[in-house]
Write a protein that binds this DNA or RNA. Structure first.
Length: 118
DNA sequence: CCACTGACTACTT
DNA sequence: CAAGTAGCCAGTG
């Protein structure tokens, strides 16, 4: 039996558009449990295959990939780059450009329009 | 029920 | 910037 939080998180992750990313904390926040970022990683670990989640579109708050080299770092980076996500010199993604807010697509003609943080 | 573990985060040194 | 700390809470045993 999955918790409501988990179900919401799964739905949110499945809605991340191609070429955009979200942070663990953001997913937790949108799922109703701010600060429960760690549960998202656990969720991805155990359910990404079963629910066909775009797990590679989830990165940490620094805009970096949290996977180790032996855990799929290269694969995640390759998948993101194939969707058009660009990495900076320090292997980080510019969240001002690629972070998906779930709200910024409504009135935006440009999907890459920078989102404001608050 | 208790203890422990995370692909995390924000805050403080 | 690096390192430490304290929250976080679903799974697992």
């Amino acid at each position: 039996m999955l918790t409501q939080f988990t179900q919401r998180a799964v739905r949110i992750i499945k809605n991340i558009p191609e070429g955009r990313v979200v942070t663990y904390g953001r997913v937790a926040f949108l799922a109703g449990k701010p600060g429960a970022a760690r549960q998202i990683s656990r969720l991805l670990h155990s359910m990404s295959e079963k629910h066909q989640l775009p797990w590679h579109r989830v990165v940490n708050a620094k805009g970096k990939i949290s996977l180790g080299r032996s855990q799929g770092y290269e694969l995640q980076k390759a998948l993101l780059e194939s969707e058009g996500v660009e990495f900076l010199h320090n292997d980080a993604i510019d969240l001002k450009i690629y972070l998906w807010n779930s709200f910024d697509t409504v009135n935006s003609s440009d999907p890459l329009l920078p989102v404001q943080d608050f």
